[in-house]
Design a protein around this nucleic acid. Structure first.
Lengths: 194, 194
DNA sequence: CGTCGTTGTTGGATGCGGTGCAGAAAATGT
DNA sequence: ACATTTTCTGCACCGCATCCAACAACGACG
């Protein structure tokens, strides 16, 4: 059997327990006011070990979504020059499919209590940019000019993030994220583009 | 006369000279590799004084655009519930009007040389989010639902930033930024919203 | 002229995020 | 018992950013 205790010292913690500890503290005293030392202490490990599990403090919140975005970016880059609407959509949609309530959903829901508004603005901006850039790249390599590709990518990225936010604020009900996203996509078409 | 040497110790530097020193160093050795101490030293002032002129290192690049975005946000918030397409556009357009080549334009043009790609992705994301949020707020208070308002705001914000980027990369020719922006706005309407 | 309030500058101390590393600790296999 | 592998831990280090107290240069006023 492959798994089950290979050689070496066993892990003293896990991403899950660290993320739990972090979220508790974020709710209790806010995101800014919680240092990495605080998180590590509550999880019972040293500060150094925190970085064996997460690359940064914000990674606790974003690693789940980031992995999905990275996957989607690979799919989009693989589309090459024959990208069209449906293939792009097929590449992007898995980002939201089966997205379980996680630290990010909790943070979106309790942004005010965590004092996270500024941080969230900043961090969602980065994810927006990544997704938009990936989509725009696909659009551009299928012949659309720069600015239009940017706007297209931006709209799609916003559809993802906005539906995610609405879903999280509504309590992260199980199946409704995909529904929110589909509605967002529909919104892109019939907007008052005055 | 109001101005002309009030009481108190005269300033030892200025935003302009500090920004110049910073941009030189960014070009020479990259953004990351340039510390605030480096900038202050080249400008002939102490590290502490740097913060009398700029709030942060990235502020050197972004303060010009940030001020315009802040103004636009005020105008958008003042629109109240009777915001429509033309009034929103009138509130946003001054962001690009008369935007002179400044540290940001230089950074956009020389992003690769400055090793700025990552930083720019992050920072443009934040400005995008601010503009999108301001526009979406106006759209929402005029009756549009959340997700559609978000997408609308995002598209407009992207129009600003994308036209800015294209303009800067083309060498920041004097009058063409407004033209780029107008074209971006036109792109929003007739996109292949497949 | 000296004194005073104002405005800026400087340096030091502090905190936090993040990186790098050497050495110890806990497991496995032989 | 031993080497090996993996992880943990503490420590030093750097840069950004904030705060603050001391000092320096100005104008104004008596």
């Amino acid at each position: 059997m492959a798994s089950e205790s290979r050689a070496g010292r066993p892990r003293a913690s896990s991403r899950e327990t660290l993320a739990e500890a972090a979220c508790e503290l974020f709710l209790e005293q806010g995101y800014e006011a919680t240092s990495i030392v605080d998180i590590a202490q509550r999880a019972g490990v040293s500060r150094s070990s925190f970085f064996n599990y997460f690359d940064s403090k914000s990674d606790v919140l974003w690693s789940g979504l980031d992995a999905r975005i990275a996957d989607a970016s690979v799919r989009l880059a693989a589309l090459g020059c024959d990208a069209d609407g449906s293939s792009v959509r097929a590449a992007v949609e898995p980002i939201v499919q089966g997205f379980a309530p996680d630290p990010l959903a909790l943070a979106l829901r309790n942004a005010a209590a965590m004092g996270l508004e500024q941080e969230l603005l900043r961090d969602t901006g980065l994810r927006h940019a990544r997704m938009a850039s990936a989509v725009a790249g696909a659009a551009r390599s299928s012949g659309i000019d720069q600015i239009r590709a940017d706007i297209l990518g931006s709209a799609l990225a916003t559809a993802v993030l906005s539906s995610l936010r609405v879903w999280a604020e509504q309590g992260a009900g199980q199946a409704s994220l995909e529904v929110q996203f589909d509605e967002a996509l529909r919104s892109i078409h019939d907007l008052p583009w005055e």
